[in-house]
Simulated scan of single mutants.
Amino acid sequence: MLSESANLDQTIVKGVNYLYDHQYPNGEFCCYISDEDEMKMCIPHSNVFPTSLIAYSLLHLKELPEVSEMLDMAAAFLQYQTMRGGVWNNFTILNPLFPICPPDVDNTVCASKFLQAMGETYPSNEALIMANRHSSGLFYTWFTLRPSLVPIKDFWMLNFRAFKHPISTFLFWKKTEAGRYDIDAAVNANALFYFGYRAETAPIVDYLLDIIDRGKEADCDLWYRNPFTIYYFFSRPYTAGVYQMKPAREKIVQRILKTSKPDGSFGEGVLDTALAIISLLNWEVAVSNLDAAIAYLIRQQKRSGGWPRWAVYYGGPKKQLCYGSEEMTTGFCLEALALYRIKLQEKA
């Protein structure tokens, strides 16, 4: 049996060592931008989001000294990047795009969720996030000005940044695929993961379930155009006790399983396979059904200890920009392997 061999543990250790060697001194993890999914030609880009995602994936391995050190550094990095009101921007403070890009709910709730899990401090942001909702109860993606009264000082102070760079801000909304009224499914799923189920987040559940019912997971979010990424984000609230998401379980599980290949992989390769394994385990699928997929991930690990980069999220539906890195893929692979090992131990 796979769990009884040294392969799984060795693979995890090699992956951890890869990330340990590749984390920047400030705690950030690398992100690249490219114009195609395989990211064969890419350039580095300083973003906050990859560190939030990778660090959360590593929480399942926090008993390892190297991981504990990485998590502390990631937490310090995210605390340093915190903006007024406890929100986060997609771009780091030193990125030239930081002054003109508004902070967003996705970065905010993901960074907050990680810091919360670490027991680290950050400014209270619930009121500010809750004020950034549509009349339907769904969260807007961006913290930006709209014709509505938000009685929170930090909201207005954040938006005064736009007046410092009026032309650049105008061009941001004009030339990018972002819009002031964007409402995105994965963003709302991550908000649900952060806040849990309550009166204010109940509309999100109906919204997400409807997307799965209609088979719209590949076209429900401007920034996440891969259904496996959507499956991953939709599964996380369930693990946090939002059992109202359970009606989506069977449909998601079956759609993932239909993409399985003879070599054990799911979807288009390593990243999809890792996301699929995590999603299936989050939905409590039996681990025995995933042995082949785990073996595939182990075979695909590079000699360096990492896994190949692939686009995780995009700059919009046109996919003119793709964001990813070996570090991001490796983070998801380690989360898949760690969860699989935990489930095996629980079963034993």
Rank of each mutant, 00 (worst) to 15 (best):
P123M: 06
I93S: 07
S135Y: 08
L115H: 02
R133E: 10
N90D: 06
M130Y: 00
P103K: 09
S112H: 11
V109E: 08
N95D: 15
S124P: 02
A111T: 15
W88L: 03
S136Q: 06
F98T: 05
F114D: 00
P96K: 07
L97V: 08
G137W: 02
E120W: 04
L138K: 02
T108W: 04
S136T: 15
M118F: 00
E126H: 10
P99N: 09
D106E: 14
C101A: 15
L97Y: 13
L115F: 01
E126G: 04
R133C: 12
P123C: 04
Q116V: 01
P102V: 04
D104Y: 10
M118E: 03
N132T: 09
L115Q: 02
V87D: 13
A127T: 11
M130K: 11
V87N: 10
P102A: 07
Y122N: 00
K113Y: 01
P102Y: 02
M130E: 06
L138M: 10
L138P: 03
P123L: 12
A111Y: 01
L138G: 07
L128R: 01
K113W: 00
M130W: 00
N89Q: 08
G119R: 01
Q116D: 10
Y122R: 03
P123E: 14
S112P: 07
N107F: 04
C101K: 08
D104E: 14
W88Y: 09
N90C: 11
A117H: 02
H134W: 02
P96F: 12
F91G: 08
F139C: 12
E126T: 12
P96H: 11
L138T: 05
T92D: 11
G119V: 01
F98C: 08
I93C: 05
K113H: 04
C110Y: 01
A111P: 09
E120A: 14
